[in-house]
Design a protein around this nucleic acid. Sequence first.
RNA 1: GGGCCCGUAGCUUAGCCAGGUGGAGCGUUCGGCUGAUAACCGAGAGGUCCUGCGUUCAAAUCGCAGCGGGCCCA
Length: 1052
Amino acid sequence: MLKEASQYDAKLMEQKIQKFWDEIDAYSKVREFRKNGKKFFFVDGPPYTTGRIHLGTAWNKIIKDSILRYKSMNGFNILDRAGWDMHGLPIEVKVEGVLGFRSKKDIEKYGVGNFIAKCKEFALTHRDEMTLQFKNLGVWLNWKDPYMTLRDEYIEAAWWTLKQAHEKKLLEKGLRVVNWCPRCETAIAESEVEYAEETDPSVYIKFQLKGEEDTSIVIWTTTPWTIPANIAVAVHPSFEYVKVRAVKEDKEEILIMAAQLMQNVLKQGRYKNYEILETMPGEDMKIEYEHPLRDKVPQQKAFKHNVYLADFVTAENTGCVHIAPGHGIDDFELGVKNNLPIFCPVGPDGRYTEEAGEYKGMHVRDANETVLDDLSGKGLLLARGTISHRYGHCWRCKTPIIYLATEQWFLKVTEIKDRMLDEIRKVRWYPEWAGSARFADWVTGSRDWCISRQRYWGIPVPVWICESCGEIEVIGTMQELMERSGKPSLDDLHRPNVDSIFIKCRCGERMKRVPDVFDVWFDSAVASWATLRFPRDEKTIKEWWPADFITEGHDQTRGWFYSQLGASMIAFGKAPYRSVLMHGFTLDTEGKKMSKSLGNVVTPEEVVSRYGAESLRLYVLSQNAPWEDLKFSWDEVANVHRMLNILWNVYRFPLPYMILDNFNPFDVKEVPEGLRLEDKWILSRVQSLIKQVDAAMSEYNLHKATRPISEFVLEDLSRWYVQLIRPRTWREANDPDKLAAYYTLYEVLVTVTKLISPFAPHISEEMYQNLVRNVNPDAPASLHMCDWVTPDEKFIDLELEKRMDTVREIVEASSNARQKLKRKLRWPVKRIVVVPVKDEVASAVKSLESVLKEQTNAREIILLKSGETWEELGVEVLPVHAALGPAFKKEAGKVLAELKTVDGRALKKAIEEEGSFRLKEWTITKDMVGFRDSIPPAIAQAAFSSGEVFVDTELTREIESEGYAREVIRRLQDMRKELDLAVEEEIEALVEIRNDKVLELVSELKEFISGEVRAASLVLGSDVEIQGDLVKDWDVEDVRMRMAIKGTVKTS
RNA sequence: GGGCCCGUAGCUUAGCCAGGUGGAGCGUUCGGCUGAUAACCGAGAGGUCCUGCGUUCAAAUCGCAGCGGGCCCA
């Protein structure tokens, strides 16, 4: 049996549904139900387990959930383990914060094992919290068996992959300049560098040429602490450089710099006069210079310092670039190319080493001043100032990063770049440019991937090195490690456990693991096979891999899209995904990034607590194209909520009637014969809607799938169809016409329920449970187990859809016209006249005349021929003064006065037929007058896109009678409502009308009124003793009325 | 500095691929409706389509340059 529904309470309903899903384990049931379907492998981009989810993560999971629900209903067998990214520096930093640690030494003191345990606990706790948050959004993924990067089986996937790299000679240990956080004492990835404004020194330094103390080449830098490591100067081969004799305080010196920057440099150095001695292109510069601090940094005496050519030199500052191959990426590459020493006198803690001579032990952060003072003392500082620029910081601890040349492990992805680009072309990208433009561009410019980090909480790099012969071995699995080390069991592959495992080298000596852990990006890079438990399980990967679909934000272009592709190319030689949907970012209303510091963060919880998860879901899905950034707007969420409320009301409205009538949709075996045209129309519309949703979903255009559903619910279903069928539902007898309406509305509601279910899974489930399950216990237990709807062409009638559009336009135009004469819709009008300009209008009006009559509340519809003028329109005469004046001279005034009173239609007819008109003693000719249709006072006109409509509001006794009767009915209904009476309950009503004429008019329709308001007794009079459960005074069109109603026993 | 995306009413947006009188919703003003009712419907006002230049008979739409925002990189 159907049940009545109460008002829409999103939160209550969502909690109820989520509880229901839990109780019957709906997720597992649905996946199990589809297990013989076509396989669809989805890999969840793993969120990082720190803190709470934000709007962007919510959006991300909502997209995934909606698409998977859609795929499932379409019969796919889905594999969708949720994923968690649980290693890495961010968690280490959080744990360090909790424990009050400031450096790696504190961790070592505390014990690596203890520290790892804390990190693990942190990750697991946050995973649980975040799982709950996602579930509250109604997101269905495999939460019971998620993949977690901290599991041994996952670590093995990473190990195995590295072993492949090693075997394919794509793993390399090398000295590279990396971004280095001196606090965390580790290399950090490009993606872990956060840029922020920083004030730094901006200094011009003179490097004296060897053997020419008076002559210097001028360089500029913002990092004076790198000067002790200077090895070379770079100039641009095609820039012009000048040798200038410059004078300051009566001292002369010779300076070398780029010609176009000379003025600026001399100004900076406050030189008064100058003279250009020589001009040369960069490529002709053969210069050797002395290191400015060679007395402080003795090692520098052993190096030669020369000028080299480089394209990366820009025409800024001096045009001569200070090169420290140990402290810059370009510098390093230039050094390698020219066989320069990679001199890096700075240790991992950011302090100068022994090699820095007198600077030893000083932190580079404090060194700038000292170095500048030393240079100044030697007279080598040309100018010093400060500059505010963007500088990289460690994204976790906010420490300014430095560049350091260190020994790191690299994946040589640059060697397989071409194949990666080939693979990108094979993947389907949504939108297309995400792959062809954005991703391809990023891959083209990518460098070798530094995968090692000098930290603790991560997947240990499975490289063992012989302490004696230096032989390298990469371990691929736990089993292999046990075999090689002779350990019978291993329980956890993290540090410090693995640090104490040694294996035996071929040379007979001991091999020890390198101390590094992986860059976390390598963890998630192997997700597509780690989630299939490869290499532990070798069978599943054959059945499922590669992934059919992944979707993440556009920041993941250089992140997960890239890391996965790189790792997969190394491991399997092909892309790990077949299709990728790139989505946008959530921004605030201004289009600015949401950030704590700006205080503009909106959390998913806030939205859910105000409007429910369903509103948030449908909002993020429908607001934008998925790949565009989403500017969050509370108003728009409220709007979506409103739509859901209307859907709910449309669902709720027929229930009491259907229940009262014992309507059982399953008794209706076939489409009832008595369907009205409006029924056929809405059935056609809903079928067309299915097509529209399917077309949009085939391109993952979630916005184009969801918007038409909302529009259908609001425009077609609520604002039109429900309004049309209301009178039918009120009929009491067992009327086939009513049944047809029930049948139709029921069909439409069930279809809409399915259509909206991937996007709004709660409200649709609730509706389904009542509409379908309560009537048919054999139906699938959950809506999400139902098959997707397929459009049934036999119901589609586009011609009818078009006609109905026309009729709706006419109805709108007629309400517009009514408004002009302030005639309420409650008051019938004698007739409306439709004047089409297109022929289609006629067929629409004819076939849907009953709809038109009812919705316009018109007694009669008159349809004219296309282009015909309605004969009852008057004709207004527009005198042409320029013609009348000369023709009648002094009498023109009189003629004008006459023209105002003349019968315009007769005048027009005469002019048209005979060319002139006899107006008293004057002859009016064609050139003297113009004409315009004039609308009689009781008639109002309004246009619609394919014609115009006239509404005749002339009152008749009968119309007035009905008008007043309806005024009385409306007020009695209002009072019923106020007493909260049930629909079927009968009342006793008393109405006192202190106006004899109106009383008489109303009394004529006493029976009608009683019927409409379900009155067992109705008393109408001019002096009635008023009493009842509710008494009210009303002012009806300036007539005072007093009404009372009393509820009686239910007639049941 | 480079790549990609975005810029349309006070707000959120459709239209742009394929050039031809810019449509909605929210908000606002006015009116209506009342057996979905803490709902609902109609109308009015509100636009330098980011700016400039170009192509064209015709540009929100195509091209170029610039400005602003986002992501990524340097």
